[in-house]
């Protein structure tokens, strides 16, 4: 498969995953604030949504204060911010367009529709009139595209590159949301059991689409169990362990080496990451410090992303000078 095509499929899926995550994050925030009248007056109620991105500096310089409208604009319609929904939709569509002959025509059509609904006229009016529906629709459009891909694309190399992108992005997003939200809610840990607290924990789970699955496993809301669930659950498709395991599997499928043969840098990076997740216990994580643990995972994920780029997308003849084709991490 052409490197450029693999690159486009990989990024198209990362962008789609990113779009869905952002939509879900905003949707769960809107829901949570409905349950917390006191918090609605808090001028910093929407700040965590910017903290998650780590782009606070860009936000204060270009957007302003952490008001609801401003945070929503930043995440949804800011064309200058490369991680906003609209920027990701445009990028996903451009990538899809450049591999039109590879993906199924139904997939292209749905990605095109998503683009028209977010970038078309009247989108921002729709978002402010009925934000719940707006973000819900985006989320469902992303699910639809994934479902169509699953059942119309051949599950060959193109599919494995799609999986690789999707699961790496998802692992990254789960770790970021957990990292930021945990420390915001944490100071209130003495009030365990108070309604304020559990509303926030519930919102955290919802923002990772995991409340119902969590309930099935643990019933009671507790911070430690939530962290355990989101990092280590072997079956929940958004836990960090699950995502990295699937990314690793996609990698072995692409490479064609037997599973478990760690004979190059990328394989070893995956192996180390899986080792860390397979052989750690939640108590150890809490002892090291959750933030430090997640920080390491995130930096490992970045290394994996770079190695993928070098191995698959940027193979150069010796004579060629360095020229970067990397997309926005």
């Amino acid at each position: 498969m052409l490197s450029r095509v693999a690159n486009s499929l990989y990024w198209m899926n990362r962008y789609l995953e990113r779009i869905e995550n952002t939509a879900r994050l905003i949707e769960s925030q809107l829901h949570m604030l409905l349950d917390l009248p006191s918090m609605r007056k808090d001028p910093n109620a929407w700040k965590p949504l910017v903290d998650i991105t780590g782009d606070n500096q860009y936000f204060t310089e270009n957007i302003g204060r952490y008001k609801r409208e401003e945070v929503i604009f930043f995440h949804t319609f800011d064309r200058n911010y490369p991680h906003s929904i609209i920027s990701c939709v445009i990028a996903a569509r451009e990538n899809a367009r450049s591999v039109r002959e590879i993906i199924s025509s139904e997939m292209w059509e749905k990605i095109n529709n998503l683009y028209l609904s977010v970038a078309g006229p009247g989108a921002s009016l729709k978002a402010s009139k009925n934000p719940h529906k707006f973000y819900y629709d985006i989320k469902m459009a992303c699910h639809l595209i994934l479902g169509i891909a699953y059942s119309t694309m051949a599950h060959g190399e193109a599919w494995h590159f799609s999986e690789l992108g999707r699961f790496l992005e998802r692992a990254d997003k789960t770790s970021r949301i957990l990292d930021v939200k945990y420390f915001i809610i944490l100071p209130r840990i003495d009030f365990v059991g108070s309604s304020l607290d559990s509303v926030q924990w519930t919102a955290l789970l919802k923002s990772i689409s995991s409340l119902e699955m969590y309930r099935k496993r643990f019933n009671l809301i507790s911070s430690k169990n939530i962290v355990d669930f989101l990092i280590f659950d072997r079956e929940f498709p958004r836990s960090i362990l699950y995502c990295i395991r699937h990314a690793e599997r996609a990698y072995f499928n692409i490479n064609g080496t037997p599973f478990g043969v760690y004979d190059n840098d990328l394989a070893r990076q995956f192996g180390k990451l899986m080792g860390k997740l397979n052989y750690s216990h939640i108590d150890e994580v809490m002892a090291i410090g959750l933030h430090q643990f997640l920080d390491e995972i995130q930096s490992d994920l970045n290394d994996v992303g770079e190695t993928i780029h070098d191995n698959f997308f940027a193979n150069k003849p010796v004579s060629e000078l360095n020229q970067s084709g990397a997309q926005i991490q």
Partner: peptide, 8 residues
């Protein structure tokens, strides 16, 4: 040559 994921 074309650049592919498996080399040139």
């Amino acid at each position: 040559y074309m650049r592919t994921t498996q080399g040139f």
